[in-house]
Write a protein that binds this DNA or RNA. Structure first.
Lengths: 139, 139
DNA sequence: TATTGTTATACTCTATAACTATA
DNA sequence: TATAGTTATAGAGTATAACAATA
């Protein structure tokens, strides 16, 4: 079976990301976390007091879609929201959230090492810079 | 704002794929095609007479999810299904489908060149092999 | 006037289970 | 017994429009 799609870097990018996210999701599942939730918790820990809107901009998630995501984390007792002014809310991890994130971080580290190890050594140093150019590059 | 996520290749992979697929979808939209539909048409052209199940395996799309996808293409008059035996169906592009795919291929080529051009030259030759290792590599 | 949080809604892709008919 | 096509359904992520309240 001929597969002309395999010649396209863009197709390889999509298939690789899809395969890796499936694997990552499976590894997070035992913790009861999705990867979008996990990335939000990582950013909240690194930026305590940040707001939903700021978080959405960093994660490229629409403001509207942050609402159910943060609701789930709050309902699970992993984050708390404190009013800053009458409009914004300050986000922070609860003690339970800190514990859960610590567990998630070991999953992340193991996963990231596993991912990199799949890449042949001669290409390894080039992967991240190449990917960064795709999503961070001038525009 | 601290962004620890930016240190992870896996995160860069997801963001890069997401950004590129958004761009690719936008370029295909004027043709009335989604990228999943477009990739199916590419494979049908390269493997005339193939079946929905074979296609699904190549594209890593569940058999069940191929049904509405192929229905849309058939309704749009871009593909046709011919019974092989009492069970399988042979897929092929209609003349209109061939025309549409030719248009899509120019979009694909322009897009793929644009994508690669975003990657700094020294990393460029390494991107595809690295990505291939991630989704095609031993397992 | 711009921003925050929110609701409602819809679309794309993906995943699973189950059924019928056929190989 | 395994496979092809199909239906139904659900989940995850994403997108837009609109609104009230606040900065």
């Amino acid at each position: 079976m001929a597969d002309p799609l395999q010649s396209f870097p863009g197709y390889a990018l999509r298939r690789a990301a899809s395969a890796m996210m499936t694997e990552f999701s499976a590894r997070l599942a035992p913790l009861g976390l999705r990867y979008a939730e996990t990335s939000a918790m990582v950013l909240i820990e690194a930026n305590p007091g940040t707001t939903a809107s700021q978080l959405g901009r960093m994660l490229d998630i629409q403001r509207a879609n942050m609402v159910p995501l943060l609701n789930r984390l709050e309902t699970a007792g992993l984050i708390s929201r404190q009013p800053i002014d009458g409009k914004s809310h300050s986000l922070s991890l609860t003690p339970a959230g800190q514990v859960r994130l610590a567990e998630a971080k070991t999953v992340i580290d193991t996963f990231e090492h596993w991912l990199i190890a799949r890449v042949p050594e001669e290409h390894r140093p080039h992967l991240k810079p190449a990917l960064d150019a795709l999503w961070l590059g001038e525009g």
